[in-house]
């Protein structure tokens, strides 16, 4: 194959169409056992229903969240970086095949509302545990379940889709 062949193939290929962001999110969630594909019509209907339900439940959720005690941690893991941001992960006791986990993040890139990912680098290959978003002050608290056998000591927070760019790490050598 000559460079001229490559030029010809490029011309014939034409510019690829960029997939929309929501498709990327849907596809990248497939390995995590997301539900089977739902038709777009159904998605619209579900979206409307979900929006209505959210509007109704908004006030209730605040009350529930305030009233819901934090998990009883059996271990706590601190994540830090060099510029003062931090996170704490509270690990709960196993409940069946999974265990609860609560993540609190502070001062993570304040001023922007971004997506982040929580990874367990102690698992091989590394396992993404959660995708989350912070408020504008760079903080958030989320609760989730992870497999009881998942490693929770070597945790890393990265920007979404940037698994090579650790922002906060429990193993400080990584950040």
């Amino acid at each position: 194959m000559s460079p001229e062949d490559v030029e010809e193939q490029l011309r014939r290929a034409g510019r690829p169409e960029a997939p929309p962001e929501h498709l990327q999110r849907a596809v990248l969630n497939l390995p995590r056992g997301s539900s089977p594909r739902i038709s777009r019509t159904r998605v619209v209907r579900l979206g409307v229903a979900a929006a209505l339900a959210l509007a109704v439940l908004a006030g209730v959720s605040i009350v529930v969240t305030r009233g819901n005690p934090a998990i009883q941690p059996v271990a706590t893991v601190q994540l830090r970086n060099a510029v003062g941001a931090g996170a704490e992960v509270r690990i709960g006791s196993p409940n069946g095949p999974n265990r609860p986990l609560e993540l609190s993040v502070q001062h993570l890139q304040p001023g922007s509302e971004r997506y982040y990912e929580l990874w367990s680098y102690g698992d091989h290959p590394p396992m993404m545990l959660a995708t989350f978003m912070t408020s504008k002050d760079g903080s958030c608290t989320i609760r989730l379940s992870i497999p009881r056998t998942a490693d929770w000591q070597d945790l890393v927070i990265t920007p979404r889709d940037r698994a090579d760019q650790p922002l906060l790490c429990s193993n400080h050598g990584r950040c």
Partner: peptide, 14 residues
Amino acid sequence: SELAFRTIWQRYGA
């Protein structure tokens, strides 16, 4: 491997 899946998406998604 999820990372391999993401890599295939990065290369072939568009």
